[in-house]
């Protein structure tokens, strides 16, 4: 059987989203940031809202979001993406506004803006990429770094004196302004498919005008963790996911109680 019999337009089942342009992502090989940006593009394309979306980029590895997507994107000052997104949404309430931030941006310098945007119940979608490290600046310890995690600034592992990792999604779920809070991962095909549904839900919630949707992605940072992409994903499975359990934390404004 000839392979060219299969490679035909009518047999197409998956291709790169048309919202992404032809520029090559500048992320390290195997980085979860690429998958998340790909998912945003796919969700926007499926909802057919390319001309109605305004993104807000942050500082960190997510800074170049405007480079790769054929969408309108604003770059905010470090940590201030939620505040900028608030302004845009209040001026143009009909547009879909999302912010894309990493853990250094959302959970460190921008904690105040993020928490208050959630508390005010701004009708935006906040996308949070949690890889437990400051990837872009060279792998320093982040507020989300796990206990015992070795980073450039905690070479013997994070200890008690350096504080405890923060579960941002659980923090913002406690605030009354959030409508939908979920934690997803993107390192296996099944999880990517699940994450896409959650992201789509987060975008569709903006139509309801009921509050903020917060999507956390637990991803790898293989360069920062000094592991190969496959090993980094295994490490993520073994160490990150037990501390950051996946699933919906708050749906339709109500905290999900887990049956044990």
């Amino acid at each position: 059987m000839d392979i060219n019999e299969i490679i035909k337009e009518e047999n197409l089942v998956y291709r790169k989203s048309a919202v992404l342009n032809d520029k090559v992502f500048n992320f390290c090989p195997g980085c979860g940031h690429g998958v998340v940006q790909k998912l945003i593009a796919e969700v926007v394309e499926e909802m057919n809202i390319e001309s109605e979306v305004i993104g807000v980029g942050s500082v960190g590895c997510s800074v170049l979001v405007y480079e790769f997507m054929e969408l309108d994107v604003v770059s905010a000052a470090h940590g201030r993406a939620a505040a900028v997104a608030t302004g845009i949404k209040r001026v143009m309430p009909d547009k879909y506004v999302f912010s894309l931030q990493g853990d250094g941006d959302l959970a460190a310098i921008g904690t105040s803006e993020s928490i208050h945007a959630c508390n005010r119940g701004e009708n935006i979608t906040m996308i949070f990429i949690n890889n437990g490290i400051y990837g872009m600046t060279g792998g320093q310890m982040a507020p989300t770094s796990l206990h015992g995690m070795k980073t450039a600034t905690s070479p013997y592992g994070r200890n008690e004196a350096m504080g405890h990792p923060i579960r941002m999604s659980d923090v913002v779920a406690q605030l009354e302004g959030t409508y939908y809070v979920t934690r997803q991962a993107v390192h296996t095909p099944a999880m990517v498919r699940k994450a896409k549904k959650a992201l789509r839900q987060a975008f569709e919630n903006q139509k309801l005008n009921k509050g903020l949707s917060f999507v956390e992605f637990v991803t790898n940072c293989n360069s920062g963790w000094k592991l190969s992409p496959i090993k980094a994903n295994q490490w993520l499975d073994q160490h990150m996911l037990p501390f950051y359990p996946l699933g919906d934390i708050k749906t339709e404004g109500v905290i999900v109680t887990k049956d044990k």
Binding site: M1, I3, E5, I6, I7, K8, N11, L12, V13, Y14, R15, K16, S17, L20, V24, F25, F27, P29, G30, C31, G32, H33, G34, V35, K38, V186, H187, T188, P189, V192, R193
Partner: peptide
């Protein structure tokens, strides 16, 4: 690249998990 083209079932797992969106998948029923 496709090392064993005969084995492919067009499940799209590779394309979905690819961080750089480099893979296009085709599937046909014979």
């Amino acid at each position: 690249y496709m090392e064993n083209p005969e084995a492919c079932i067009g499940c799209t797992n590779c394309a979905v998990v690819c961080p750089d969106g480099v893979i296009t998948v085709y599937k046909k029923k014979f």
